[in-house]
Design a protein around this nucleic acid. Sequence first.
RNA 1: GGGGGCGUAGUUCAGUUUUGGUUAGAACGCCGGCCUGUCAAGCCGGAGGUCGCGAGUUCAAGUCUCGUCGCUCCCGCCA
Length: 588
Amino acid sequence: MRKTHHCNELSAADIGNEVVLMGWVHRRRDHGGVIFIDLRDREGLTQIVFNPDLEKTVHGKAHDLRSEYVIGIRGQVEGRPGDMVNPKLKTGEIEILVTELKILNSAETPVFQIEDEIDVSEAVRLKHRHLDLRRPKIQKNIITRHKAGMAVRNYLNANGFLDIETPVLTKSTPEGARDYLVPSRVNPGQFYALPQSPQLFKQLLMVSGFEKYYQIVRCFRDEDLRADRQPEFTQIDMEMSFVGEEDVMSISEGMIKAVFKEVLDKDLKVPFPRLTYAESIDRFGLDKPDMRFALELKNVSDIVEGAGFKVFADVVKKGGMVKALNAKGCIGFSRKEIDDLTGFVAVYRARGLAWIKVKENEWQSPIAKFFTDDEKAALAEKIGMEPGDLIFFVADQPRVVNEALGHLRNHLGKKLNLIDENEYNFLWVTHFPLLEYDENEKRFQALHHPFTSPYEEDIPLLATDPLKVRSAAYDIVLNGYEIGGGSIRIHQWETQEKVFKTLGMDKETYESKFGFLLSALRDGAPPHGGIAFGFDRLAMLLCGEPSIRDVIAFPKTQKAACQLTNAPSETSKEQLEELSLRVRKIKV
RNA sequence: GGGGGCGUAGUUCAGUUUUGGUUAGAACGCCGGCCUGUCAAGCCGGAGGUCGCGAGUUCAAGUCUCGUCGCUCCCGCCA
């Protein structure tokens, strides 16, 4: 018996033909006499029919069929009478009258039903992932991911990119995320690190003259998980020589456009809008703003600085800022709702959330009494107050204000239904600062990574005012998710050394860690730059899913464990011995 | 490392606070019977529980206390 069709392709045109289908018993409707079974494979469903009047033996055998049995059937394609057509199925015009049944395998009763709208905890789904992956919706996600990958490859191949593999066993580097380490058996006491990204290898490939490189590649970062973060994840990694920012952005736009056309048949408008980092923070509080709705932050520091409300004025005098967010028409928020929002911003270290309810001729607000009429007018104008509005204020250090209100903005966007879920809103955020100051370690850190090129005119600032140095880095943001980021790289070793030094590394350190890069840069490195996309996040958004776990066949739990294999696990003494490792258990 | 939510039948939940108290319920699924046109088939019947785990308080714990494990969302972290 050999299958002739899949379960989603037969139609009225096939009526009268003999076919062989194979798949899983999706649902069984046993009428005592006639038995209907929905046969399922990855493509869809076809109804097959066992009729005792026509095939008594086969019908008898069909009584034993249960959910998820794997069967093969031979039969005739029959048309269904008009009132029995099932419009919900693509194959709903026909059914197969079975003449031969082969039970290929039986199955335990599944732990949950194999259908899209199940209400099952993720723990159960992950424990039985092979069953979960049978659900049409998850299958569709995995297939969508495949299609996206193919669209990426086709596009990049057509544009002269070469797919080149880079090592997975590589070198641990300072900076960045925690590394996953792999002990070396042949070099006792020494370790490889799994790559956080192929960053340096792709730069070396540019030095080697490959000019355009890409790879859909696994990356590893030993950090805590989130709905959109797994310890191993996949990047669409690209690098190009002889290019500037605009070149990388426009090739990226072309690629994303191709993916959306191929996968969703959606025509995206390119180029995507651009926003500088400074403007993004100013208007939206975050460097990955969700632009599907308006609602912008307004900086009112200059107005409140001289005003009578000491809390606000003092913050501004100490180098902080006060920003406002106008929740249009939300005057009806209850005390509890406002308290909840205060709790919401507290997560981002905001110590309070001041508010004003704007009425026809007055403000209802705990802070109204501190402002003169002139100041009120100035605030009203700056914030665009109208009767019915509810205004929120956060006063603190800029970082706190922006994060608190930026996230509050996203929160209100959802709460107030300001978001069109069908929209795909892309933008580029550009002109990132090269560095930020790490208060804990008391030193500068690369915002992007240490190989990002500063703007040439800003290089002198490295010595005098490093935080003012802007970088040729760019992030691509979709609906508030950072789906990719890249930069033009430093291709001159002198500049690279300057940056390493600014990051607090001495010559010995950066020579031992990055000597191979510096050496390559001295050997005729072309100007180059690139970008990496978070393929899981992109797939998640293409599928409309809330978590990347829904687009990864075998994801890990929040404790970075695999529920199927029970990885990670302890290992044998022999294995440890071979690797020259000793495990010390520390009691806490 | 920290904060929130969750853990009771195969699954999703109710019961836990207020009030610790007989035999822990429902739905779906499962099993059996009836049933020849369903497509979430229908009707009748039935089975199914280490209340995550471990201590403690108590005459008595799903319920109270402590600890612990797991899942999840977030903060920190993620160049």
